[in-house]
Structure formats: structure tokens, C-alpha cells
Amino acid sequence: MTVKKTPPLDLSDEKILTVMKCRPAGIMTYVIRNILDMEHGYRGLKTSAVLTRLKRMESQGRVERVSSQYSVQICWRQSDGASFLHKEWGVSVAGYGEERLVAISRGRALSDAWHSPAFAGMSFGDFLKRAKCKQAESGSPFGASIIVDGKPAFFVGADNAHVRFAYPGSVNISSAHPYEVFPIDLRPAAYRHEETAP
């Protein structure tokens, strides 16, 4: 009689990150799973369980995808904390038109769009049946390096009174007073007269 071995119950993000350190340039999902199985005692661990944790860490800015020779399998590396995580997305919903959103992933963009008051009476499932979402082409200065209150950040957008930005590795988008932002040409036009360097 064969006794089925089950993986330990203490699989954590930190354990996966420890495995990833052995290949800092990039490591495939299935390779992480194999190392955990063969070298760390996680017998019977499913690749899907590892992938779920990696995607969660991706949304937190702790890991990122890197290009590889494979078209389907995903290669990962630890984020150095200096990357700009956000992308622009075009979300269109039948009967409602299209909206351009900034989010770290397609799923987050769809979720943000669904939370619009226009869809208050629609379930998320019904919304997904009618919605289409694809990454939009982002032109300059989106993602440009800026300084906010003396700290490095990335430019997201601006209106007449605020500059939207994200810190390196952060999933959050914040707003700053224009006078806190350098270079001055990325401030709203009315605030570009201040020429004091940070």
C-alpha cells in the first residue's frame, strides 16, 4: 500500500523567495515547485499552488515576470523594489463606452472599472461577460522618473491641482502638491514657475 505524501502546511511567500535566490536572473514556476518538492520536503506540492502565491506577490510588487524562451510558462525574479508596476488599460463595456485606467494588472483594472457607480446594480460576473480589457499604449511622460518631496517616484498623471505618482515597487497611486514635484515641466502649467531644485 502506497502512502500518499502531502506537502507541509507551512508553505510561505518567504520560502518561495528563498528558493528564487538561487537563480536571481529568473526562475520558472515549475522549477520553484520542483526545488520545494525535492529539497525542502514539500512532497506532492502542486505547481498551481506556487503560481497562486507568485501572482499574489506580483500584485504586492515583491516579484516580477521576466521574458524567457517559453511562450506559455512564466519566468519570475524578485523585484529590486525600483520598478514601476503600473500600466494603462483600456476597459470597454458594451453599452457604456470605454474608459482608460491605471492599474498593476488586467484583473485590477477590471475590478476598478466595475466599482464605478455606473455598474452599481450589476454583479461582477455579469460585468465580466460584457467587459473587454487590454493594455493600452502608454506614451511619455507616463512612468517617467520624478522626484516627489525629495524622494524618487514615477509619474502617473496630473490635473490642474495635483500630480499623481507611484513610489518604486509600490502598488498604490498617490497625489502630491505640484510644488513637491520635480522636474517642473511635469507639473500642471500654473505651477511651472518655481525653479528651486530639490
Rank of each mutant, 00 (worst) to 15 (best):
V156D: 09
C133G: 08
S68N: 12
D112V: 03
D112P: 03
S79K: 01
W89S: 01
H115V: 05
S71T: 11
D80E: 11
K134F: 14
I35N: 00
H40Q: 09
N172S: 13
Y191R: 02
P183T: 15
G61Q: 00
P7Q: 06
D126A: 11
V66T: 00
G41Q: 03
P8M: 08
A176S: 09
A25Q: 12
E99G: 04
K151T: 00
D13A: 11
Y42Q: 01
T29A: 03
S170V: 10
T2Q: 05
V181N: 04
V50E: 05
A131R: 10
H162E: 14
D112G: 03
C22G: 10
A190W: 08
E180M: 15
A103F: 10
A189W: 08
K132C: 08
F124N: 09
W89L: 01
Y167E: 04
E64T: 13
G157Y: 04
G125V: 06
A49V: 03
H177L: 15
Q73I: 09
S79E: 03
M28P: 05
V163Y: 01
R56T: 13
R62V: 12
L9T: 08
T196I: 14
G81D: 06
F127L: 02
F127C: 02
K87Y: 05
V171K: 12
S71L: 09
L128S: 11
P183V: 15
V148L: 08
G150N: 08
F154R: 07
M38H: 12
V3D: 10
I184V: 10
R53W: 01
W114H: 15
E58H: 08
G90C: 12
S71R: 07
Q69T: 13
F182V: 14
S145F: 12
M28I: 05
Y179G: 11
G61T: 00
V181Y: 05
E180D: 15
V102M: 01
Q73R: 08
R53T: 05
F182H: 15
E99F: 00
N34L: 04
I184E: 14
G61R: 01
R43F: 14
R77W: 09
Y42N: 02
Q78F: 07
K151L: 03
E98D: 07
R108C: 08
V93W: 00
I74C: 07
N160T: 13
G90R: 14
M28D: 04
I147E: 15
I32N: 02
I184M: 09
L186D: 03
F84Y: 10
P141G: 06
R187C: 05
G90W: 09
V181E: 00
L110K: 11
A190K: 13
D112M: 11
A82P: 00
D37G: 09
A144W: 05
H86C: 07
A189V: 04
S67W: 11
T6S: 13
Y70K: 11
I146L: 06
D80A: 10
A153I: 06
I74M: 06
K151Q: 14
